[in-house]
Design a protein around this nucleic acid. Structure first.
Length: 281
DNA sequence: AGTGACGCCTGGGAGC
DNA sequence: TGCTCCCAGGCGTCAC
């Protein structure tokens, strides 16, 4: 499940693999993968042909490639999307939906997506981000992330901590895995009300989020299977460092109590029943 | 305006 | 063995 560390790992691979190269031709094999490009697949391909990729950028879990036309090839990996830079003659992946060939021909960019929650589109670029992404907050690793603004906004919310961490308009880049890991480190239950946390406690929570994300970026992200790999096809190593996510019944690394799994927002939350007690109702 | 529910998708695994 | 059901869960949209 690509969250900030996985998307950042892909971004770095794209910066190495496609920045400075000029698009020769684009093939869309599955229209659903460009459904957010409302002018259609032909327009999508037409806006890319002949354009040079300037760099690879990221905001939260979104990626974009600024082009010399002033547009940006923008994408979200969704649940299972991959952006791969591979030799142009390598075998076609089962769920290959978009191919971007370059004029210098030895490698190509491929968008592969089993569950098709992700997608690509071409939009006007902007500063600091394409207007399409204006609603996405900065992430905790962004040098311009405003800690005190985050503290105030979170404490004004009337919801639970985990919901707040997952809200990309409040803080971006955090998904289910890193939300659970952040809450475990902070020793807070995800259903603790946001408006009853002290300012220092919110600052500590943010610090833990930052630590987890930074460590996971160093590890190249979290890979449970072949669904998440870098642009070069390499798996991340952070799964070994997870303390709660996916570890139901295993002893908490801090206190030894068996990790519990709870249902939350139609998904799973993992936490320590002793270190992270549920809030009183 | 903030909050939360819903639908979109496929493959793997459990259970019968 | 083969069928059904459940689960993974980010994000845009929509209702309240």
């Amino acid at each position: 499940m690509p969250e900030l560390p996985e998307v950042e790992t892909v971004r770095r691979g794209l910066q190495r693999g496609v920045a400075g190269r000029t698009v020769a031709a684009v093939t869309v094999g599955h229209p659903r993968s460009v459904r957010r490009h409302t002018a259609g697949a032909d327009d999508f391909a037409g806006r890319l042909a002949g354009r040079t990729v300037l760099s690879a950028q990221r905001r939260g879990k979104y990626l974009w490639l600024p082009l010399d036309s002033g547009d940006a090839l923008t994408g979200h990996l969704g649940m299972s999307g991959q952006l791969l830079v591979v030799p142009a003659d390598s075998p076609l992946q089962k769920h290959l939906h978009v191919r971007v060939r370059f004029s210098d021909g030895d490698r190509e960019l491929r968008f592969v997506d089993q569950r098709t929650f992700g997608g690509l589109l071409v939009v006007p670029d902007g500063d600091p981000v394409p207007p399409l992404l204006a609603h996405i907050a900065r992430d905790p690793l962004d040098p311009e992330f405003d800690d005190e603004l985050f503290v105030e906004r979170l404490r004004r919310r009337r919801t639970g901590l985990k919901r707040a961490l997952l809200d990309q308009t409040l803080v971006s880049g955090i998904g289910n895995i890193y939300a659970d890991e952040t809450l475990w480190r902070a020793q807070l239950h995800g259903e603790r009300p946001t408006d009853r946390l002290s300012r220092p406690a919110v600052r500590r929570l943010l610090g833990h989020a930052r630590d987890v994300l930074r460590e996971a970026v160093v590890a190249g992200g979290t890979s449970f299977d072949a669904l998440y790999v870098s642009a070069e096809g390499v798996s991340g190593l952070f799964a070994h460092s997870l303390n709660t996510y996916g570890r139901e019944g295993e002893p908490c690394a801090r206190c030894g109590a068996p990790v519990r799994r709870e249902s939350f927002m139609n998904r799973s939350s993992f936490s320590c029943p002793r270190c992270q007690p549920r809030p009183a109702r």
